[in-house]
């Protein structure tokens, strides 16, 4: 399957990724080539195969619902681009 410019623009929107207008044709080429490689999967009949999500087919481990983490808000927020009064700041969302 190949993709076109509309697909690239749509996927970039879904991925929240700004892409230069000028680079779109290159993405069309690259993604089409990669998808052509991926298409080889269709040569195999997998109707009765059970999907493998984990290499060792392990189940997710559970633990008691206990508080194990300590509050490190100040430490983590020291890394943030913009904070105020313990809150992460972003541009106004609700008018």
């Amino acid at each position: 399957m190949s993709v076109d410019q509309t697909d690239i623009t749509k996927v970039a929107l879904l991925a929240r990724l700004e892409i230069d207008e000028a680079d779109v044709p290159q993405y069309v080429d690259n993604l089409s080539n990669i998808l052509a490689l991926v298409e080889q999967m269709n040569e195999v009949d997998t109707d009765r195969v059970v999907p493998m999500a984990h290499p060792l087919d392990a189940a997710q481990r559970l633990r008691p619902d206990e508080v194990t983490e300590v509050d490190q808000r100040d430490r983590f927020q020291a890394l943030a681009p913009q904070v105020e009064a313990g809150l992460y700041l972003v541009p106004k969302v609700i008018e």
Binding site: M41, N42, V44, T46, V49, V50, P51, M52, A53
Partner: peptide, 8 residues
């Protein structure tokens, strides 16, 4: 499909 082939 990929996860199925992964099993194969």
């Amino acid at each position: 499909k990929a996860q199925k082939i992964r099993r194969l």
